[in-house]
Design a protein around this nucleic acid. Structure first.
Lengths: 362, 362
DNA sequence: TCCCGAAGTTCGATTTAAATG
DNA sequence: GCATTTAAATCGAACTTCGGG
């Protein structure tokens, strides 16, 4: 007894209008509308009438035309989701969080993938705005576009939440992970295992996450009296492609090995980099974790799957997606009630996930 | 000079209607509509008029209201995308293919994730139909729902393409990988490396991919005169969760090892299973590929990232997503031109990707 | 018949104002 | 005034029909 038992009752059910229901039930379309939407005026309508109308609607398989409804009400029950690069495995769980939270609220997501291209961003933004999305969730996971592109968003004047990218202004909300804390716990973990000679692959300079993560590392080092050896620190180059940090991580690790400054652990900027590092280590005949411990950041799916499984700092990706939607939904409500939309800035705590790629220094 | 330079010209630009443009340009809204849509009648309208109207539209930052447009034209320029489980890494590239092809055609995807739940499927389907999506792309990547659920789709009477699931009927199109060929080339690869004692982890019985893949394996075995040892063949159990095959693969491999029937290679149903197998082998002190070669199927992102990188049979995921959209788009065109929508069934060839997890038997 | 443009209807719902008893 | 119902206006664009040159 699927939905089509009803839907098909009149052949092409999409053609049943409110007037058909009105005729069938013997009331006017006004009354039908009031009853079916349970509008304020429905108080005055006697249960008998309601029953008859509902029965008629069901019998005909009536489904209101969303276009007409939206045209009138100016609501689309739709939220735009802009991802900067879908192929980043990091997106998967964030999207799950977004989808799930929207579903609970009976909103539908329109998904766009900007491919890290400015023109695509603009085109998509325009399309979404034309479609009157009620809110916008932007997953700026690997952002190398100039920031004033995001300024365009501010002017759109619809509730917007940015994930993975904080904007100082109070016009747009943001949800980010506490990168500083993440950096801290990663290093703290390696230190607690006895590692002292630690190599670092830092993030690209232009990536917003890089600086705070490094700051956390420095703070931890200071707190533990750990010496950071400049000869063991390298930087990921800029790149538009999130998967490229695998190759970059591999190359940098090879270079690190060549320098002959021994290290017993390597703290990588993210999981992708860590995978590259492990590959390089392995090719150099160095075993992980026996001869070198490695940590990542993010906890993408692959981290739990590879062998040895990667010790990493997990971003609460699903929660971040859900949080962004919560904020946007609240913003939408504010707009409806003509209250002021206030920006929220959430910083979620990451979680250290200890697996097999790190080991106590013996 | 973003789009908002224009959009904001009149404060809340979303309020500029075609009538405003008519007033501004001095023509009627009819003429404005004709010119701006470049409708057939536009032939008759002199360039001067067009220019003036276009200038007026630009000056006001006019953007047609899509609701009104859709209400009238009965078109939404929107396609519904239903994924059975987003968390499956397999989805990522398929979605990229879908998105990219839709973008070229100026269509927007509405993304839904069914979470492998029947109720969610029905609810989402209803929502999409209410929104008058012009077509439907269904990614049945990990399908354990009864098949007659998909029968619901047939009745929706909008162009639909199924990915990863073939339906005999001629009412719905499908795009699948040639599983039989895939199974064949996987085994052929191991055989060519000299392996004879090969273990197999087959797919779950209820999964549509399982049977043809195994058929390809048997065909290859027969063609090469290879003996398939029943004691080295195990089956993945049914599960709603695509990631679960990691655990299952691990457990089954442990069992395989315990049986003490030696094998030099293991052919896993998919990458996830292969990752589990590699973990089990590693924990048993067996090195991959030195002591045991392993192959997967799919080529998810993790396969290239882990060490050793996984030799696998790649599904052309992006092409599959793109192909499904092509079919749906053609179907939409057929509907518009009142031609009959004919179902297409595409079977794409997989590609063997040789990496590090397999090695010549020495 | 060709060219140019406008008035009016339509799409399907919501909502206001008003009419009944 | 109250409970009950509805005619008519509205949302914004597209299309049909028509008229004048």
């Amino acid at each position: 007894m699927g939905i089509f038992a009803v839907r098909r009752a009149k052949g092409n059910a999409s053609m049943v209008t409110i007037r058909d229901v009105a005729k069938e039930s013997g009331f006017s379309s006004t009354t039908v509308s009031i009853v079916l939407n349970n509008a304020p005026l429905a108080r005055y309508i006697p249960p008998v009438t309601k029953k008859r109308i509902e029965r008629a609607a069901e019998k005909l398989g009536y489904r209101p035309n969303e276009f007409a409804r939206s045209l009138r009400s100016k609501r689309s029950h739709t939220v735009g989701v802009m991802v900067f690069d879908m192929t980043d495995p990091y997106c998967t769980l964030v999207l799950r969080g977004i989808e799930n939270t929207l579903y609970q609220a009976s909103y539908l997501p329109i998904l766009t993938d900007v491919h890290n291209e400015r023109s695509r961003f603009e085109r998509y933004l325009e399309m979404l705005l034309d479609r009157r999305v009620e809110g916008l969730v932007v997953l700026a996971n690997w952002l190398f576009l100039d920031i004033n592109l995001l300024a365009d968003l501010e002017k759109s004047s619809i509730p917007t939440a940015l994930i993975d990218c904080e904007l100082k202004g109070d016009s747009m909300s943001s949800v980010i992970v506490d990168n500083e804390l993440g950096g801290y716990v990663a290093l703290e973990h390696l230190r607690s295992l006895g590692h002292r000679k630690i190599a670092f692959i830092r993030g690209p300079k232009t990536l917003a996450d890089s600086a705070p993560r490094w700051r956390g590392i420095r703070n931890c080092a200071k707190a533990c009296g750990l010496e950071l050896d400049a000869r063991l620190i390298v930087d990921l180059p800029d790149s538009r492609d999130p998967l490229s940090s695998f190759e970059a991580g591999k190359k940098l690790t090879e270079a690190l090995i060549k320098r002959k400054h021994p290290f017993t652990a390597l703290l990588a900027f993210d999981d992708m980099t860590a995978f590259g590092a492990i590959r390089a280590l392995s090719e150099a005949g160095l075993r992980v974790p026996e001869q070198c411990s490695v940590t990542g950041f993010d906890d993408v799916a692959a981290s739990a799957l590879c062998t040895p499984a990667l010790t990493t700092v997990r971003q609460p990706m699903e929660a971040m997606g859900a949080g962004a939607v919560d904020i946007v939904l609240e913003g939408i409500k504010s707009v409806l009630e003509k209250r002021e939309v206030i920006a929220h800035h959430r910083k979620l705590a990451p979680e250290l996930v200890v697996r097999e790629s790190t080991r106590k220094l013996s």
